[in-house]
């Protein structure tokens, strides 16, 4: 209860951060006594918010710590669906696990799980995603798309398009997509996307779209085995970014492309993907679980697979790690 009220006090302060608001005004809007408001202001200060207090004028928010808690994000959301329900955990084993549990319990489409830190962030096939506290965006979005299961892999490419667009909007950094959906800056990984589908042989029950975005890590934050392959927006952009604003932007862009996809199909997503990827026309090596294919990436096909020209053969790639020559 106290937490809910604290969020409301914060929301009121966030909405009016240009002006002072009297304690009386805040207590009227939130519906509690002035003494209670004072208590919540003290707690917000303990969380890192700087709130200026002036006699006869009231309170004004002057500094927001880079938090990813629910009220920070909801304040900036402009979506109808995505992120309308948020579950925030300061520390979680993995947001994927929480999202699966929530989805099975009936979470509506667009529900979002965010953690400030993941102790065992999930990568693909049991790999671990490095997710230290207060630096990155670790979150999982629940989808219930009304599409046949065979088309579900469209969503992994759609996710890379949505997240890239959001990052570009916020940072102007030259994000490139590596097939199918890794986001790179200067050839190093900035974001990984893990898409897990639960369903039977003919029906999607739900999809959990997991995203890890390296935002404010400094280069010495990365463990040595990641230094060569991973980077962050802060390292590349030489400034720090608000994670809450970026999450709100990611929700906006993902929702935009998702609704566009449901209305117009994969074609507009494919066009945008091809323009954001620097793979098409390049010589690549694709290591699939079955073989190693060397050739030129020719196009993205209508199901999202990568068409690779190898000698006279045109090979369809469904699963692979891709390296540019």
């Amino acid at each position: 209860m106290g937490q809910v009220l604290r969020h409301e006090v914060l929301s009121v302060l966030l909405e009016n951060s240009a002006n002072f608001l009297s304690g009386e005004e805040i207590s009227k809007r939130v519906g509690v006594s002035r003494a209670a408001i004072w208590k919540h202001i003290k707690e917000l200060r303990n969380e890192g918010y700087e709130i200026e207090a002036k006699p006869r004028k009231g309170y004004r928010l002057i500094y927001r710590p880079d938090r990813v808690a629910t009220e920070e994000i909801q304040n900036e959301l402009s979506t109808k669906l995505f992120g309308q329900q948020i579950r925030y955990e300061p520390v979680a084993k993995s947001t994927q696990i929480l999202a699966h549990q929530w989805a099975r319990a009936g979470a509506p489409e667009g529900s979002l799980v965010i953690a400030d830190e993941q102790q065992a962030g999930k990568g693909r096939l049991g790999r671990v995603w490095y997710s230290p506290p207060k630096t990155g965006i670790w979150m999982s979005l629940i989808l219930r798309p009304p599409i046949p299961i065979q088309q579900a892999s469209h969503l992994t490419l759609l996710a890379s398009v949505g997240v890239s667009s959001a990052i570009i909007n916020q940072t102007n950094l030259p994000i490139k997509i590596k097939w199918p959906n890794d986001l790179l800056l200067q050839g190093k990984k900035i974001c990984g996307i893990l898409t897990e589908l639960r369903g039977d042989q003919d029906k999607i029950e739900y999809i959990v779209l997991g995203m890890g975005i390296n935002v404010n890590q400094q280069s010495d934050h990365f463990p040595s085995e990641l230094k060569e392959v991973a980077t962050s927006l802060a390292v590349q952009g030489k400034q720090s970014y608000s994670r809450a604003s970026l999450i709100a932007e990611v929700m906006k862009e993902l929702e935009y492309y998702y609704l566009l996809y449901l209305e117009q199909g994969f074609e507009p997503i494919r066009n945008r993907w091809e323009s954001l990827s620097d793979l098409i026309g390049k010589k690549i090596t694709a290591k699939t679980p079955q073989a190693k294919v060397v050739g030129v990436a020719e196009s993205l096909s209508s199901d999202g697979s990568l068409m690779v020209r190898s000698g006279k053969e045109l090979i369809t790639i469904y699963s692979a790690d891709i390296d540019k020559e």
Partner: peptide, 27 residues
């Protein structure tokens, strides 16, 4: 798995697995 979409397939039936017909890593 295709395009990094991990499809966790549910059985849809109750019973006993008699035979696994595909190999790990096979397309």
């Amino acid at each position: 798995e295709a395009m990094k979409l991990m499809n966790e397939l549910e059985a849809e039936v109750s019973g006993t697995i008699v035979q696994v017909l595909a190999e790990n890593g096979q397309l």
